[in-house]
Design a protein around this nucleic acid. Sequence first.
DNA 1: GGTATGATTGACT
DNA 2: GTCAATCATACCA
Length: 196
Amino acid sequence: VKEQMLVPRFFDRPAATVAAELIGCVLTVNGVGGVIVETEAYDGTDPASHSVNGPTPRNAVMFGPPGHAYVYRSYGLHWCLNFVCEPAGNGAAVLIRALEPTTGIEAMAARRGTGDLRKLCAGPGRLCQALAVDRSHNGMRLDAPPFAVLPAVTPPKVMAGTRIGITRGVDTVWRFGRSGSRYLSRPFPDRSATGK
DNA sequence: GGTATGATTGACT
DNA sequence: GTCAATCATACCA
């Protein structure tokens, strides 16, 4: 029996909810990918989000229907993949930051130029390189080829923390990761000691 | 037309 | 730990 793809309705909820629930789900592009182990949420009220100042040519997809891919160029060098969330017009999306590689590992290693499993998809730019995601995927729906997003088999333990690489909205705890995963872009700080 | 700024990564001290 | 690569985007004149 073929596994059931996540329905578009899954994405028609707040980005932070979707971001947390995506941990443990499986993402593939043309059959290559793995288990989502790290995500971040952004939305239209969020000073760190591309969508905070309303629609522009670049972020237009964020204001479109949920369940589509928003792909943008980062630092002129890398691609980053997001899943659009919430009803149209909200400007919400989830940045996919890291995967545990499971299928098509040889293809990913060739694209990345390394056999180091831990560095194949650990980071939004690396992940897009490994899965060959680029501008051509911007606006594509996530429930049809080349994309496939499958539900988590067993709900993993999820950690939360502050987002990476931003200068505004730095205190918002909208980064989510699979607890104990070796495939995160960076570890989650241990917040139990100092209490911050 | 000019310029400042990144939701990053890899190389290097 | 520091820092350069590299360019689309956004904003201002």
